[in-house]
Simulated scan of single mutants.
Amino acid sequence: MVFPFVVQAAPADFDVAKRIAQKIYSDEPTDFYCNCPIRWVGGKGQLDLRSCGYQVRKNGPRAQRVEWEHVVPAQQFGSGRACWQQGGREQCGDQDQTFRRMEADLFNLRPALGEVNGDRAHFRFAELPDTPPQHGACPVRIDFKRQLAQPRPEIRGDIARIYFYMADRYQLQLSAAEQQLFLRWHQQDPVDDRELALMRRTAQQMGHQNEFVSGNKRWYPGYLSHQTTLNSTAAGLPPEPKAKTITSQSPVRGNKNSKKYRFSHCSGYALIKAANQREFANVQAAEAAGFQLAGNCQTQQR
């Protein structure tokens, strides 16, 4: 792609990325999840909650501000890394250059109403027709017990293409169920002019496109298995040490109460009460059921 302006260097960390994102979205009329009007003043977004029928669920001050949402949550792209299992997000930010690149990737950021950003947390996306809305007229639906979130239909394709991009560029695993969901959303909500324009602005900063928005790439079931080696080289990603990688096909045990899963070598694996245990054949099956890797679970030795 030939850019009409000078291509900038991709942001080095999340703080820099947020400042750049304010410029990219300086004319964005509404927030991502609730479609509430935004008035941008000095790079800061001011929300008009009354006009969009938003009702504060719990955190009034946070509902008043615009935050920069990681559509693919930091926990999802960070929890499998050694730094996260040793000290969480803070340690990854201090020690892991690849994590910082993922955290600062502008294609993964959207301006979101702060309370909804907090409520969505690291929850995975799903369709939740039986879950009532909790934020007035804001169409997002969140199932806190199962840790799932349903976005409004108008942004579902945008979300799918962000997930495709992040999985493709950083070799993130998507379960079969996630891929089916996102492929359906991609088809139901195709790229529009606004999404394409924002992608081009972002590409000027990142130095490359989201090719699932431009149409240069197309996701299909099994895509990652054919692309892993090629993309590792193209993205210049340093491999994780082999002794610290997860064997995704290993059996795992989930805790029905916490919705966390562990490998047999993990602390707490044997302490899960029998009534709360749920066995899975592999990581993909656990994550498709809405379970996530326990934070104190070290990665599997190969």
Results as ranks from 00 to 15, higher is better:
Q46Y: 07
M1Q: 09
D105V: 09
Q76C: 04
L172V: 01
V16I: 05
V283N: 10
A10T: 03
S214K: 12
N117M: 12
R161C: 06
A17Y: 00
Y165R: 07
N108T: 07
E115I: 08
A288V: 02
E103A: 11
G215W: 11
A17F: 03
F291C: 13
K145Q: 12
G88W: 10
A197M: 11
E240W: 01
L109E: 04
V116P: 03
G43D: 08
P4C: 02
R278K: 15
P111S: 02
Q249W: 14
G215V: 12
F182N: 01
P37F: 13
R152Q: 15
P111G: 01
A289M: 13
I159N: 02
Q209L: 14
T202Y: 08
K273D: 15
Q150H: 05
D96R: 09
R169C: 00
K58E: 05
A286Y: 13
T299C: 11
M199K: 14
F263H: 09
A235G: 02
Q284K: 13
V71H: 08
E28M: 14
A74V: 00
R161Y: 03
W68H: 04
G222F: 02
A82W: 12
I159S: 05
Q277D: 11
N59E: 08
R278C: 11
Q292K: 14
Q86W: 12
L148K: 05
D48C: 13
P29G: 06
G290L: 13
L198Y: 15
N117E: 09
Q205L: 03
W219P: 00
T245Q: 15
W68N: 03
G42N: 10
D143Q: 09
K256R: 15
M206F: 02
Q8Y: 05
W185Q: 04
Q75E: 12
K273W: 12
A112F: 12
G114W: 05
Y170E: 04
Q46T: 08
L128I: 07
Q134V: 07
L47K: 03
V7W: 08
N255F: 09
V213S: 10
S258C: 10
M166V: 01
Q180D: 12
A243H: 08
A275Y: 11
E67I: 09
R200I: 01
H186N: 15
F164D: 01
I142M: 04
F123T: 01
G222E: 03
D27P: 00
A82R: 15
R110W: 04
D189Q: 03
M199T: 11
K259G: 05
L174N: 02
P139T: 11
A281E: 15
V56M: 05
I246F: 06
Y261N: 12
M1Y: 07
Q179W: 01
G42R: 06
Q150Y: 02
K256F: 00
L47F: 06
P241Q: 10
N117V: 12
S232D: 09
P251W: 13
Q249G: 14
H265N: 08
E240I: 00
E28W: 11
K259Q: 13
T233N: 06
Y165G: 00
R194L: 15
R39Y: 00
